[in-house]
Design a protein around this nucleic acid. Sequence first.
DNA 1: CCATGGCGTTCTCTCAGGCGAAACGATGCT
DNA 2: AGCATCGTTTCGCCTGAGAGAACGCCATGG
Lengths: 225, 225
Amino acid sequence: MGAERTESVERALSILTAFSIRRPRMTLAELAAETGLHKSTILRLTRSLAVYGFIDRDTEGRFSVGASIWHLGLIFRQDFDTGETIRPVLRELVQLTGETASFFVRAGSDRVCLYRENSPILEKYGVEEGMRLRLGTGASGLVLRRYSGEVLPDLTPFNANGTVSLDATRNPNIASISTPVFSSTGAFRGALTVSGLNSRFTASVRDRFLADVEASARKLGQQMG
Amino acid sequence: MGAERTESVERALSILTAFSIRRPRMTLAELAAETGLHKSTILRLTRSLAVYGFIDRDTEGRFSVGASIWHLGLIFRQDFDTGETIRPVLRELVQLTGETASFFVRAGSDRVCLYRENSPILEKYGVEEGMRLRLGTGASGLVLRRYSGEVLPDLTPFNANGTVSLDATRNPNIASISTPVFSSTGAFRGALTVSGLNSRFTASVRDRFLADVEASARKLGQQMG
DNA sequence: CCATGGCGTTCTCTCAGGCGAAACGATGCT
DNA sequence: AGCATCGTTTCGCCTGAGAGAACGCCATGG
């Protein structure tokens, strides 16, 4: 039977995803350690990545992400949403709840925070726009997994609208409520999430927030082609 | 001898680069036509691209760029330059010359406009931030090719500082002056370019602009690690 | 001075796995 | 019904990707 996937391509992509905000430049040996690939393999793959401008190499031989990625990133953003749609909704949600509002999409087995509006009263707690996190078992992770086609063994965290409300997932002090956003054509676009210190998420407050998030998600979905 | 490069990886990358601002979503058949690859090949490769979140597929089967690209794009930008360095220099150059200033980097056999400040008097003429263009034979293309290691057959367009001043290259009415930017460590970072209607680029004006661009490039280089 | 170790690069052999033709099934258009 | 277009699957052939070691090149230091 023909291969379902392509090994060398996935290895090349694992090289790309080895880079992070904290480590934007790596030597060959570092990349090998990070990816578990043989150095010769990395050399071969990065040569091809470099030809297409997906990876650069400086004079000291260190690798970094190439400009083609940036160009493609802009294509992604303009196709997905320029921010003109999502950001106002997030801001409104912050006003309504006083908490932090974010919009996540799935990227492979991770989730990426596309947009985020921070609560005015709460200092940031680690998540920023563009950040990449494991899907995990948090509220937004569950939403992303369910509505991007995964079959989950347990659907009890979800209410009838597909919303998940959880305490203390990624961060032990943080509660979050996440709901799916569907475009007007019914396609799943991402997870709209409100999160904050769980000390403020009492039962009644939580109910109000949940309604707010679901209302915002509906509104947002209408605006997304 | 071992393969210098990896064919399947380059095919996968050619799929990614097939997307553009104008065509951010494509069907399988369109992708096949655009890349020249067999449909079965595209299916196999895109499966792997999707696993890593580099490509998405909507419910109607159309492909689009995935969120992993966006995440990597932010890594690229924060590593390369957040814009805090380059943009002020561009603005100053616009003030000095009254023309449009841009900063290009190389991405494979293309050039990408990372930053651009448009002349206040001239309407835009097609190039925008994030745009991808062939390297070609324009001023910035020549600079990028020479200082990213290519051996050019003819170096007469370059002055002693590596600057190129040309008329009517990409656009028959546009003249441009481009000079390399080197970081304080001597590494080549990109091409700083001033361009505008060639009717305004008289000999004396051109000399002044050239000095301005070179001065800005030196200043910019100092600030770039 | 020459070990020693870490680094990037190159080579070669082998076999997994990528390739593409072709067939298939679904949908839509006339 | 008939034809065209599209996406998907299958499968045998053979290329080309991968592992691993060897090589050369600095450093560092004993």
